[in-house]
Design a protein around this nucleic acid. Structure first.
Lengths: 200, 200
DNA sequence: ACAGCATTGTAGCCGGTGTCTACATTGAGG
DNA sequence: CCTCAATGTAGACACCGGCTACAATGCTGT
């Protein structure tokens, strides 16, 4: 089927994907609060009840969107992790990747870490969070073995770095912090994280 | 009108405060998404349009709630700052105060750092953020003078600490991180922040 | 090939919501 | 005491999410 005829077929083909795509667009442009299932359906050209066949309710759509966000963020972090050998290089790459994601998709980040999820989705999303911070855990486990990082519970150390990055990202996403400024000073931030606030 | 049983006076007296109080309650109990102006009005016993006299729209109410949140957080941080002399003591107290707030009022924290605010409110809220992190800035400025803290742009140093704390708080509020666990390991986190991840 | 059936889309309804406007009641100041 | 701004009310409107009954479609087993 080369082209869609003037009259749409009764079945859309892949409504679910179309909904997610359109939803992501309006999320980016108008924010999560302005997202309406009916408007999505109108834009796509199906009836207002059609989305209900693919998402149990609105929150299910938002959760699916959040999952997509985690996948994207994971890819970005994994790519950064492979940016080359060397702990500090990788650390800097991960930091830039995380903040870059926050700058490019602030609404999505907010959605991913929103506290309102359907109970059944929250398990998947929790796993997604663990996966996301997994790159960090791996990085620090490796660095600890080679003695580049202080001893101690690796989980806690990874959490320290994760909290630091997520804090910056969250402040950017909530526009409490100027994005460009934060990115510009990011290397210095990473340095402070690694070497501490106490003089050496 | 005829039927007013218990003869509530036509004017409520302080509807604005009552709205905020009731809103804060439902925010705590059912979350921000479940907040309805009409329901608030019903609970208080006024007509559905009465809230409109005190808040231009729903977002204005939420913004006012967020402002209250900042005031509370500021008080908690100021109190922690006065927890006694000594940089490290104050730092620990601030950290516990911030995370305590996140544990007790996760929905409020999310609301405070939501990215959807009325344009006119966002200025006030931005100022509130600065005020909130002001305690940190002050703390680090003092510590820097007495040589307890590494040299460098004090704003950036304060932001490092702020990001760290806010990251932990945000992860708690989004229930991506277990609250008790985070609070239990908080002193260790502060230590890592101060002394860095690199071995000394 | 084709009958049966699960999947997907439709139309209509319901209760609820935010916001607007016209009107009613009140209390405070000239 | 009289006016008038502030506050509360009632009704309307458009929209939304979710449900149900129904229609069109396409897959699968025989």
């Amino acid at each position: 089927m080369a082209h869609m005829p003037a009259s749409r077929p009764y079945h859309h083909g892949d409504l679910r994907a179309a909904l997610l795509q359109s939803a992501e667009r309006t999320l980016r442009e108008k924010g999560a609060g302005a997202l309406s299932l009916r408007e999505l359906a109108r834009d796509i050209g199906v009836s207002h009840a059609a989305p209900g066949r693919h998402f149990k309710d609105k929150q299910a759509l938002l959760d699916a969107l959040a999952m997509e966000g985690y996948e994207r963020l994971d890819r970005a972090l994994a790519e950064a992790y492979g940016a080359g050998p060397g702990f500090e290089k990788r650390m800097a790459a991960l930091a830039h990747a995380y903040l870059g994601f926050a700058v490019e998709h602030p609404e999505l980040l907010e959605l991913m870490f929103a506290r309102k999820h359907r109970p059944d989705s929250s398990a998947q999303l929790g796993a997604a969070v663990d996966r996301t911070f997994g790159s960090l855990t791996r990085l620090f486990a490796d660095a600890q073995e080679s003695g580049e990082i202080v001893d101690g519970d690796p989980e806690r150390i990874a959490l320290t770095a994760a909290a630091h990055l997520h804090g910056l990202a969250a402040l950017i996403a909530s526009s409490a912090l100027d994005a460009d400024e934060a990115v510009a000073g990011l290397d210095e931030h990473v340095h402070l994280l690694l070497y501490g606030l106490k003089p050496r």
